[in-house]
Design a binder for these strands. Structure first.
Length: 478
DNA sequence: AGCACA
């Protein structure tokens, strides 16, 4: 089957280890879930979760090599793959013989905690919030925050290791109270360990570091204005400079959100030129490029905090990117350049048909109701059959785009549970396989004849193979 | 879906 030499370090060629490397784990996979999966095979002496760029890998160390071998060989021959929350987990021997650090060994208590705040960007949790949370356990001397591969992190210095331990024991694995977070942040779990530091060297009071023992420490002005995430208002909210490119983070992504879904959503506000999707901190983010700042601003206002699906799924959080022109592959599953006529199976005439519509419609249509849960472009008339489920929900004055009655991801969906771009029942128009692109007309663009149907039929994510009806359902990732 | 504390 396989050639015997020159193989990379792949599955069949690895030397056994007590440590197993697990990948393709679900988001925010907890240590408990890991242990549940692994403990039938032996005693687990150490774990390391949320590893890797996407934080969806983990290491599990068994007490005994044979236990690790039994787990690997069990799943090698099992018809059922290893799963966590229904997601297939791939297991192999780690190329290291033990897990370094973490809980079991080398975790000596000190007075300084290393806190990793999962699932947030640096701008989402202000240093004041961190200070507030940790002050519950004693006087916080100093805080330094930074962004590293592991995510947003903070070093928090207490007077002594007892206080630090108390804080760690109480907060490790917990989430910062929601009322202290911006609305768009869902859960943000704290991973806390002890730092080897004993005294942090804080040079300035800034958005990223504080010394509470020295109120006279100079404030660093450049630190306040220098970087993107430092552009905070007095309330700690982001005030990044406007841009024609939006950065969308998608929270609680229980359904697959594809380029096409995003295109549908964002096209309601103007011509979407380019989209790029990528992973960040275990979540999904996307850059969406409009031709101009105004359109982006309208879209941002209207979409911020809204969910693509009802039930709080796929909640959008938008900020301005510092990009102005994305350099993306013309057509693949992670990115799209709609300005290139051919590449995206883009019907050229359609692209050309709406050259300046964006400017025209947005002033009159899509009045924005900030802070209102009404959705996107709420009063825009819907061209019949267009993007049907999106807008009708709004017209009905519902709180979210789509109703998903009593349905949970991973369950079988009732037809009513189809996502917005897929009206219950069947597609509005005939699907042309292979023609997956449709330039959506602007809602409310008076006089613009509705272009024909959205044709998403070719998107596998929208229609799981063997789906019993043609209505497309959210595809709960694997 | 592919190996980790700055």
């Amino acid at each position: 089957m396989s050639s015997s030499s020159g193989q990379p370090q792949f599955r069949y060629t690895q030397t056994p280890s007590k440590v197993l490397h697990l990948r393709n784990l679900p988001w925010e996979c907890t240590e408990e879930e890991l242990v549940e999966l692994c403990k039938p095979f032996g005693k687990i002496v150490n774990t390391k979760c949320n590893v890797g760029a996407n934080r969806n890998q983990a290491f599990v160390e068994f007490a005994d090599l044979n236990q690790a071998i039994s787990m690997v060989s069990y799943y090698a021959s099992s018809s059922e793959p290893a799963q966590v929350r229904g997601k297939t987990v791939y297991i192999q021997y780690s190329n290291r013989q033990e897990i370094v650090n973490n809980k079991s060994s080398g975790d000596v208590a000190g007075n300084v905690l290393l806190v990793t705040i999962e699932g947030v960007e640096a701008g989402d949790v202000s240093i004041d919030v961190i200070h507030l949370v940790f002050s519950a356990f004693g006087f916080v001397h100093k805080i330094a925050t930074f962004e590293k591969a592991a995510g947003f992190q903070a070093l928090i210095q207490f007077s002594d290791s007892e206080t630090a331990s108390a804080a760690r024991n109480a907060l490790d694995g917990r989430s910062i109270p929601r009322y202290l977070l911006p609305e768009h942040v869902g859960s943000c779990h704290l991973r806390i360990s002890f730092s080897a530091h004993t005294d942090l060297n804080i040079k300035f009071q800034s958005h990223r570091s504080r010394d509470y023992t020295n109120p006279y420490l100079p404030v660093n002005p450049s630190a306040i204005e220098g970087t993107m995430q430092s552009m905070l208002g007095p309330d700690g909210k982001k005030k990044e400079p406007e841009s024609n490119v939006l950065l969308a983070s998608i929270e609680n992504m229980q359904y697959a959100v594809t380029v096409d879904v995003l295109h549908t959503v964002f096209s309601a506000f103007g011509t979407v030129q380019k989209i790029a999707i990528f992973e960040k901190n275990g979540g999904m983010q996307a850059l969406v490029q409009y031709p101009d700042v105004t359109t982006a601003a309208v879209a941002k206002e209207a979409l911020e905090g809204h969910c693509i699906y009802d039930g709080g799924y796929c909640k959008l959080h938008l900020s301005y990117s510092r990009h102005t022109d994305l350099n993306v592959k013309a057509h693949n599953d992670r990115s799209r350049d709609y300005t290139i006529p051919d590449a995206g199976l883009l019907p050229m005439q359609q692209a050309a048909a709406i050259p300046t519509a964006a400017g025209a419609w947005q002033s009159q249509a899509a009045p924005v109701y900030p802070g209102n849960d009404y959705a996107i472009g709420a009063q825009a008339p819907i061209p019949d059959g267009q993007m049907a489920s999106w807008d009708p929900n709004m017209q009905a004055g519902r709180q979210t785009f789509i109703s998903v009655p009593s349905t949970f991801p991973g369950q079988t969906y009732s037809p009513a549970a189809v996502p917005p771009y897929a009206p219950a029942g069947s597609l509005p128009m005939g699907i042309v396989p292979g023609s997956s692109f449709h330039q959506q007309p602007r809602p409310g663009a008076a006089g613009v004849a509705p272009l024909r149907s959205p044709q998403y039929g070719a998107q596998p994510n929208f229609r799981p193979a063997g789906a019993p009806f043609s209505g497309q359902r959210p595809y709960y990732g694997q």
